[in-house]
Structure formats: C-alpha cells, structure tokens
Design a protein around this nucleic acid. Structure first.
Length: 603
RNA sequence: GCUGAUGUAGCUCAGCUGGUUAGAGCGCACGACUCAUAAUCGUGAGGUCGGAAGUUCAAGUCUUCCCAUCAGCACCA
C-alpha cells in the first residue's frame, strides 16, 4: 500500500491558563499516539494545532491580572510550547491564532462566505455590562422572571417555572457574578453564518460516516442537526480578535469560535509556508485520498462535526481555483472526529476556580513523561468519562508499565549483557517455543496496528501490554538463567528470542511511550532515533514574529515492522527504563488538590 | 423540563447483530522461581450484570417504567 496522507487536527487550547491533564487525555495524547503510529507506518502525517489567542476568557484573565490580552496569551503560549515539547506531543506545527497568516486566511474565509451568500446581517439586542465592558452571554445573566416573578431566573431559562426566555425579557437583569452590575440592553448589528442552508449536505455527510464514527459522536451530531440548524453570529463587539474585513466594521471582531475552528486549515497553510512549499497543504485538504482526523473533547463536538463542515462546504475551492493539480477537487471534510469524554480527577469534575486540577507543567517536573503518557492512555475516556486518581497512577505505573514492560527489558537486557559479553547472542537454531513467542509479538503489528487505525487506542495499549506479559510468561518457562548453567547454547536461543521480542515490543509501545522506546532502541545497540525532533522555532512574518512548536521527522528511522535483530550486535549497558513511584506520592499529590496554586507574574 | 449517554467482580474497564458454567488487568490469598527496580510466573477466592416489570425456548445484550451520574439544549467555546 502506498503512503497515505493523514491530517491530525487537534483542538486549540485557550491561552488563558496552563495545560492540565484534561487537555492531554481529551485530545493531545490521543492525537499524538495516532500521529506517531502513522509516521512509523511511513504515512505522510500533518499534525497541527495552536493556542487560541482570542476570546473572552483571555480578556477576562488579562483584566484580572492587570495586563493585556496579548501579554496573557503570549505568556501561556510559550508555556504550552515547553510543556508539550516535554511530554512529546509531536505537532508538525503548533502555532497560534494571532499570526498574520491566521488573520489573513480567516478574513479571506469570511469574505468568501459573504460573497457566496452564506452570511446574513441581523440586529440583536444584547445585555451590555458597563463594568466588564462586554456583552454578557445569557447564562451569565440573572434577573426576575417576567412570567412567574422568580427573582433568580437565568438569562436562558427560569428554573422556577421552567420557561425558556431571552435575557432581555428579564426584569432587572444583572450579572450573576456581580449583582450590583447593572446591565443595559444595547442593539448591535452582526453577521451570522447561515447554517440552515447546509442541513441536507451535513446530514448526508454524517450518514456517510456514521458506521465508523464513535456512536456518541455520531448520534449526538445527528440529533443536533435534526433539532434544526439556526444561524450563528460570527462577529462581536470587542476589540481583541481578528478584525472584520469590511468598511464600517472597524470596532468589531470575528467571533472567537468562528476563527478558532478554522485554525486547522490556517495552520496547515502556515506550515506549508514555513517549510518553503506554499502549496504543500493541499496534499491533505484537496486530496480525496487523504484522511483528516479531528481530535477533540466532547464539549466541542458540534463545532467539529457540523459547524466546521458548514464553513468548509461554504468556502470550497478557496485558494485553489487555478491549481493545475487540485483545481477540480472539493475541499476535504474531516474523515473522523474521535472525540473523547472527560477525565475527572479523584472522582470530581475538573475545576480551575477550585484548583481541582492536575497541571501538566507541575507534573512533568516530578514524573517521567512516559509514565504520565502511559497512565493517561490506559485511562482514556474513549467511551465514557474516566477518572484520574493518584492511586491509579501509582498502581498502573508501578504494577503495569514498570513491572510488565520495564522489568522485561531490564531482566533480559541485563542478563544478556552480563552473561553474553554485552552482545546479542548467536543462536544455532531456535526451539519451537522460541519461534512461537517471536511470532506472537510479530502478530502484534497487525492486531495493535488495526486497533490504532480505528483510533481504539486504549485497546491497542492493552493488547501491547498483554504481549509483554506473554513474553514474561514464556521466559519463566524457558528459564535461561537456570539453563545457562548446563546448556549455554540453549540459553543463547531463548535470550536471542527474548531480545527479538523486546525489539518488536519497542515499536509497538513507541506511539504510547516514545521516550522509553528510544532508550530500548539504544540499549539494544542500534543507532539513530525512532522519531524526529521537537523544537521551538521562531517564525517571522511581515510585522512581527511568533514562536511555534515544530516536529522535524528528518532523522526518524523508526518503522512499524518486525525486528531483524542481528546476532552479535553490541548491546549498550542497560539501565532501568522507569522510575518506581513511592506510595507516598498519593497522599502528597492529593494534598495539592484544591489548594491555591501560585502562578508567576506575567510581565 | 427536553434530548443523548453511562451504571457489569474491592478498583479500572471489555462484553458486536440476544444463546454453553459473565471476561481482562490491578488488588487480595496461596504456591513456584531468583535473570530482574521484592519485579516475574502459576493457581485460586471474588460479580446474577443500578432497581422493577415485560418480550422470548433463551437477556448483561431487546421493550417500558423508576433511581443515580454525566453531557447538550444554540450568542461559553
């Protein structure tokens, strides 16, 4: 099979706070595992994402900290880059939405939608907060219900009488967070994306993919459309964001959801520019053979299964009219949207305000990236919400990752290194049991690979782990440490077979735990690196420059294929792969939950 | 309130279109082994599948109702 084009689109984090375990479990780690697998397969992977620089949460955070939105997002963007490099999320490009490229493409998309009649103007009356200097979303508004006179009705619904309402219908509306803050109704004109006109196309699209999507994503999306698609506003009265490219609209900006979701597209274009091949992105976006995967959390499903599709359908052909190769090909819609559910923490929902959270930068200071990756992958909320618990982390790292896999590597390599002069022993002929165990691990390339293809990552890891256990069991049968005393040749057979198995497992584990697989690779005496390098680069545009995380696969030699380990290959001095965790961390870490977290100043 | 999802051994989870004594890993008990970060391997004890009713020769697996949890319900993205 010739190499496929795989696009891995990863949800864009708001740059208003550090990354936490939920980001990793929901989207980044699944995406990275999937991308690394496809790279090992020799496919052309383009994995992009970036910091969402705009949006109310960032301006709110800036006000809170007495600084500017720009300073807030740049501060967190830089931390995102470092954190993700450390945990090994291998983006071909992780950029942000305040680049000149993103602004330009977002505006072009807006104009194109406008020209094609997919946008309409409408006046809305919204409640404006003088003190917060913004229009408040309905759910942040509280007031007296005009029907039942209940005094704590929400802007969207009265909890007392159950009637749905518009916030402006409330008597004496005020901000929920700040009851003294009077809200003033203000009329304002905005552009809306006319979603309704895409209903049929989107239903067809959803039906076409229903059989291979996760049921929750598929069902949810279909119901969402069937309830009726209404227009969504795509402009706001704010000053932080992508300017609306129209005369007379200078004091408005594109609404953040509208510009952020197209980041997958704009970042692909930026990536192509950065590598000096400006049309290269079309190999994914205008190639019917390419597959685009959107890795997101469940809270974002309709944006990635409906609204983004509408935008893509609406702008079809953009930047492509005269292209000799791709000119007549439609813009590709996502092939799959493997949304994850949520990862709770110690049985409770994640919450920033209560600091009920596990922050990645903190975690990566204390634990190995692979330990974290392993536990999170073991607990992926693929079908339902899952739980991050420190007890679980301790148990899974010590009793599974370290005991089954780390120990297997350590016991075999240590034995081979000491008893066979630091080299891979040369077997005369393998026993049937030895050939069988090698074949069993080789079969993993098909079975684990098939699961990874289907984005069934948890099962893939479980299968890999089971193979490691199988090798341990076989080794206990063969007992080379006992056999060697009487029959060195037979011990050489089993040790050789064990090394071959480890060489296979090294690749099977590599998408999940790339750092330790690299160590195994080296200890087995190989040169080179399984994956490419992740670095933080500075890119200059016309008026300013920006930092980005970039994966360079140039040096990568890892391949998704069975071991052909040579007898006689010199081993390197083995050392344990994983640090055994002290049970005390459970109490220590639990103690940090809910405590105030001190964050550094933003310059 | 409406829509959708989830509820299976102590824990974390598998169980596709209904069909032999309900599975895995961890934990636990006992045993083996000692190459290995007291890791590994074997054996075993543990669930009647949230509750109730129903359909069926047969239900964890379909239907209805109830309970609990979660998400969405359209200007939070």
């Amino acid at each position: 099979m010739s190499a496929q084009y795989i696009h891995v689109s990863v949800a864009w984090p708001y740059a208003n706070g550090d990354l936490h375990i939920g980001h990793l479990a929901g989207a980044y780690l699944p995406a990275d595992i999937f991308a690394r697998y496809h790279r090992l397969r020799g496919n052309h992977v383009l994995m992009v994402s970036g910091s969402d620089s705009h949006g109310t949460p960032i301006t709110v955070e800036a006000d809170k900290r007495g600084t500017t939105p720009l300073a807030v997002f740049e501060h967190y963007h830089e931390r995102f880059l470092q954190t993700q490099r450390k945990v090994g999320v291998s983006y071909d490009l992780f950029t942000h939405t305040d680049t000149e490229n993103h602004h330009q493409v977002a505006q072009d998309i807006f104009v194109r939608l406008l020209e094609r009649g997919h946008l309409y103007k409408e006046k809305q009356t919204l409640l404006y907060s003088e003190s917060e200097k913004r229009f408040l979303p309905d759910r942040y508004v509280e007031g007296t219900c005009y029907i039942c006179k209940y005094s704590y009705a929400r802007g969207d619904q009265c909890e007392n009488c159950g009637n749905l309402m518009d916030a402006i219908q409330l008597i004496n509306p005020h901000s929920r967070n700040n009851p003294d803050d009077k809200l003033i109704p203000r009329e304002s004109e905005h552009y809306f994306l006319d979603l309704g006109r895409f209903t049929e196309q989107i239903l067809d699209y959803l039906a076409e993919h229903a059989h291979h999507w996760r049921p929750n994503v598929s069902t949810f999306s279909q119901n969402f459309v069937k309830e009726g698609l209404r227009g969504r506003p795509i402009t706001r009265d704010i000053d932080w964001g992508v300017p609306v490219p129209l005369e007379g609209w200078e004091d408005k900006r594109l609404y953040v959801w509208f510009d952020a979701v197209m980041g997958y597209f704009t970042a692909s274009i930026e990536w192509a520019k950065n590598i000096g091949a400006p049309d290269e992105w079309k190999k994914w976006w205008y190639n019917p053979e390419a597959k685009i995967y959107n890795f997101i959390g469940k809270d974002n499903i309709p944006f990635h299964t409906i609204i983004w599709q509408a935008e893509l359908l609406g702008i079809d052909g953009i930047y492509n009219e005269d292209d000799p190769v791709y000119g007549d090909i439609p813009l590709q819609l996502p092939y799959d949207v493997p949304a994850n559910e949520f990862m709770n923490i110690e049985g409770q929902q994640f919450s920033t305000s209560r600091n009920w959270a596990v922050w990645l930068p903190d975690l990566l200071e204390r634990y190995q990236a692979d330990a974290l990756r392993f536990y999170v992958a073991r607990s992926f909320p693929e079908r339902q919400d899952s739980d991050f618990s420190w007890e679980g982390f301790l148990a899974r790292v010590n009793n599974e990752l370290l005991a089954a896999w780390g120990n297997l590597v350590n016991r075999v390599l240590g034995f081979a290194y000491k008893r066979f002069d630091g080299a891979v022993p040369a077997p005369d002929e393998l026993t049937a049991a030895d050939s069988d165990i090698i074949a069993a691990t080789e079969a993993g390339f098909d079975s684990v690979g098939a699961l990874l293809e289907q984005v069934r990552l948890k099962e893939a890891l479980e299968e890999t782990l089971a193979l490691a256990r199988e090798v341990n069991a076989w080794l206990n049968e063969r007992e080379p440490w006992k056999v060697i005393k009487a029959d060195r040749a037979d011990a050489a057979r089993s040790v050789y077979a064990a090394l071959r198995c480890i060489d296979n497992l090294k690749i099977l584990f590599a998408p999940f735990t790339p750092f330790s697989s690299q160590q195994v690779h080296e200890m087995l005496g190989y040169e080179g690196q399984l994956f490419g390098d992740l670095s933080i680069e500075n890119y200059s545009e016309e008026n300013r420059d920006h930092l980005a995380l970039v994966y360079d696969g140039g040096k990568a030699i890892g391949e998704w294929r069975t071991s052909d380990l040579r007898a006689g290959q010199a081993l390197r001095q083995p050392s344990p792969l994983f640090v055994k965790l002290d049970p005390e961390i459970v109490e220590q870490e639990r103690g940090n939950l809910g405590k105030e977290r001190v964050e550094g100043e933003i310059r």
